[in-house]
Simulated assay, not measured.
Amino acid sequence: MNEQQESRPRVRVAVVFGGRNSEHAVSLMGAGSVLAAIDRTKYDVVPIGIAPDGRWVLAPDDQRFEIEGEQLPSVNDTGTALALASGGGSLVALDAGTIPESLGQVDVVFPMLHGPFGEDGTIQGLLEMAGVRYVGSGVLASAVGMDKAYMKAVLAAAGLPVGPHVVVRDRDWRLDRGRVLKDIEGLGLPVFVKPARAGSSQGITRVDDLDELERAVELARGHDPKVLVEAAIEGREIECAVLESPGDEPPAASLPGEVVVNDQHEFFDFAAKYIGSDMTLSVPADIPEAVSEELREMAVRAFEALGCEGLSRVDFFYTPSGGLVLNEINTMPGFTAMSVAPQLWAASGVPYTELVDRMIQLALNRPAGLR
């Protein structure tokens, strides 16, 4: 490195993780991988943890945030309290009994957050108001991608195939439960009952008997008062990752991969995803070339229908009749090096460290504000 390169200030990246929702631990695992992968010769890194109570703290930079047995990691809220000042993105230390102190500006935020109050457009709105660039999709795409009911409405309006489903809203469940149950019965059995605005398979139940339905809805309502009930789709689960391209190039789709879950799991649940090794990913998926091309094209259409940026993962069912049903799009997918989206890109020629760098560079080259 020459003297001119040494004197040039490095880009300052704040990696934000944790959050006050049931996906707190999943966020930390992804953040640990990102912190380990960021090129420290190019970037100064500031790790910021959001504690379960919503407090922002300066976090250690040397933690892997791994699951130990069945013990999930969590942000330690004893670190220096932080706030993000608007109008330039200056970090301010707020320790009790001391005068607030500026810790300098941040060039870009890498929000490794999942679920409500992070992946759903809330932190994206905060960063927009603060005038700070950030990795990933904007406010609207994040909000629509988080709310599975609106997501399916947007995808269907774009001409993409989605499965039969019923949206259970809080007021309807409380005041007109009989009609709601009748609507759900019309889907047939089995069905999957899930929170409308949650991820990582939290709060999901497969229902094979109508007597189990109310309990399943109440379980999902423990995560979100708005619930989505989907008719089970017979088929293989095929996933594809989409990455924003630089400049005016169209988004790029990865090779598709097939998720195969151990028989002891009824579906791709939290334990299969994060505890043990109960899931394998086969890349490229063993599907006809024409189906692969159609799936990749549909994944890009879904990405653009929501107005996504950065990286997204699009999940499909490949049915026995040879059709494709789009299940959902995830605007901030699991992001450890062994998560599905990074594995798909690694198999497509973009290794994890390069993927992390590319996402940061995409954010830096994107204008702040409306675009």
Score class of each variant (00 low, 15 high):
1 M>R: 10
8 R>S: 13
11 V>D: 04
12 R>Q: 03
15 V>A: 07
25 A>E: 00
26 V>W: 02
28 L>D: 00
28 L>Y: 00
30 G>N: 04
31 A>K: 05
33 S>C: 12
36 A>V: 07
38 I>R: 06
40 R>Q: 08
42 K>H: 08
42 K>P: 00
43 Y>E: 13
45 V>H: 08
48 I>F: 06
48 I>N: 09
48 I>Q: 04
49 G>D: 10
50 I>N: 13
53 D>M: 06
53 D>I: 01
57 V>E: 12
57 V>N: 11
64 R>Q: 15
69 G>R: 05
70 E>Q: 12
73 P>N: 12
74 S>M: 07
79 G>E: 05
84 L>H: 05
84 L>D: 01
91 L>Y: 05
94 L>P: 11
96 A>Y: 07
97 G>W: 03
98 T>F: 06
104 G>N: 12
108 V>Q: 02
116 P>W: 05
117 F>S: 10
120 D>L: 01
121 G>W: 03
122 T>L: 10
129 M>D: 03
135 V>I: 13
145 G>Q: 04
154 V>H: 00
156 A>I: 13
157 A>I: 12
158 A>N: 07
160 L>S: 08
168 V>E: 03
168 V>H: 04
173 W>I: 11
179 R>I: 00
180 V>Q: 12
190 P>H: 08
196 A>W: 04
197 R>E: 12
198 A>Q: 15
199 G>V: 02
199 G>H: 03
205 T>Q: 12
211 D>V: 12
214 E>M: 11
221 R>V: 05
223 H>D: 10
225 P>A: 07
227 V>P: 03
232 A>T: 07
238 I>N: 02
238 I>P: 00
242 V>P: 02
243 L>V: 12
243 L>Q: 06
248 D>H: 10
251 P>N: 14
261 V>P: 04
269 D>I: 01
272 A>R: 05
273 K>N: 01
275 I>V: 15
277 S>L: 09
279 M>H: 07
286 D>E: 15
286 D>K: 11
288 P>Y: 06
292 S>T: 14
299 A>G: 09
300 V>L: 08
301 R>A: 14
303 F>A: 04
305 A>D: 12
305 A>Q: 08
309 E>C: 14
321 S>R: 13
322 G>C: 06
324 L>W: 06
326 L>K: 03
331 T>G: 09
334 G>A: 01
339 S>D: 08
343 Q>S: 15
344 L>A: 12
346 A>P: 03
346 A>L: 02
346 A>H: 09
347 A>C: 07
348 S>F: 00
352 Y>T: 14
355 L>A: 08
358 R>T: 14
359 M>E: 11
360 I>R: 05
361 Q>S: 15
364 L>A: 06
